[in-house]
Simulated scan of single mutants.
Amino acid sequence: MTRAIIIDDEEGAREGLSLLMQKYCADVEILALCNGGKQGIEAIHTYKPELVFLDVQMPGMSGFQMLETLGNIDFEIIFVTAYDKYAIKAIKFSALDYLLKPVDIDDLIKSVQKVQQKQFQKQQAGFQSLLNNMSQIQDELTRLAIPSDNEIIMQEVKDIVYCEADSSYTTIHIANDKKLTVSKTLKEFEIILPETKFCRIHHGTLVNIEHVSKYIKGEGGYVIVSNGQHLNVSRRKKESFIQMLSKV
């Protein structure tokens, strides 16, 4: 039996999720329903849950602020939120789980099953990465917190020259000929990095426009970036790339 609590400022949302859990996730015991971050912190200290359903947007103390206040996170989290593109981008990149309101039953069951199979040690870096990225993403990301095994790598976004797909991994090419290989897909980096500065020029390449030194025209053409590398531009991506380049 998984011990859980629900933290949401909306009474209807709390009660509704609790009823869904009782009906469709009988192996989860709901220990407390909390109306906000302050009450949630008290319940976490009291009940020591294994799983917390946490609303992102709450008055007084948001879900992310509550996590920062707690510091050490020794439980799994499923975020619950109305559509918030900034929060969802950060949550996805950190490989954590979330549910959109109103909660879909199938999504709820899948998320609960998923977190029950996880090991906490692999998620701790993800939580800290999320908090670091959320603190700045609503303006424009300047430093990217990249979770890697049991550490977090803080990377200056402006120094990323381009990202290159390698199956389910991504190689980040950084200024001064440095490289960093991360177990995240290129799509995940495309989601989290500033869309005003990074452009997908090929199915396997995401380039930082500020590091493009020259564009050589052709059927698709290719770019020369600041580290001297030549990167192909696909025909399908050519038009959107040129439009973005013209705005620099």
Rank of each mutant, 00 (worst) to 15 (best):
M1R: 04
T2K: 07
G12D: 13
L19C: 06
L20Y: 15
C25E: 04
D27L: 02
L31A: 09
N35H: 08
Q39I: 08
K48T: 14
V52F: 10
F53G: 01
L54Q: 06
M58T: 04
P59T: 07
Q65G: 07
M66E: 00
L70M: 15
G71T: 11
D74H: 10
F75I: 04
I77S: 05
I78P: 03
D84H: 02
K85N: 14
K85Y: 13
A90T: 09
K92N: 15
K92F: 01
S94R: 03
L96T: 11
Y98F: 15
D104C: 03
D106H: 06
D107Y: 05
K110L: 11
K114P: 00
F120G: 08
Q124D: 03
Q128E: 15
S129Y: 11
Q138Y: 12
D139G: 10
E140K: 09
A145N: 09
A145V: 12
N150Q: 12
D159T: 09
I160V: 12
A165Q: 05
T170G: 06
T170H: 05
H173E: 05
H173F: 14
I174T: 05
K178T: 12
L180W: 10
K187F: 02
E188A: 15
F189S: 01
I192W: 01
C199W: 03
I201L: 02
T205A: 05
S213L: 07
K217F: 06
S226V: 04
V233H: 09
S234N: 10
K237V: 00
I242V: 14
I242N: 00
Q243D: 14
M244R: 08
L245K: 06
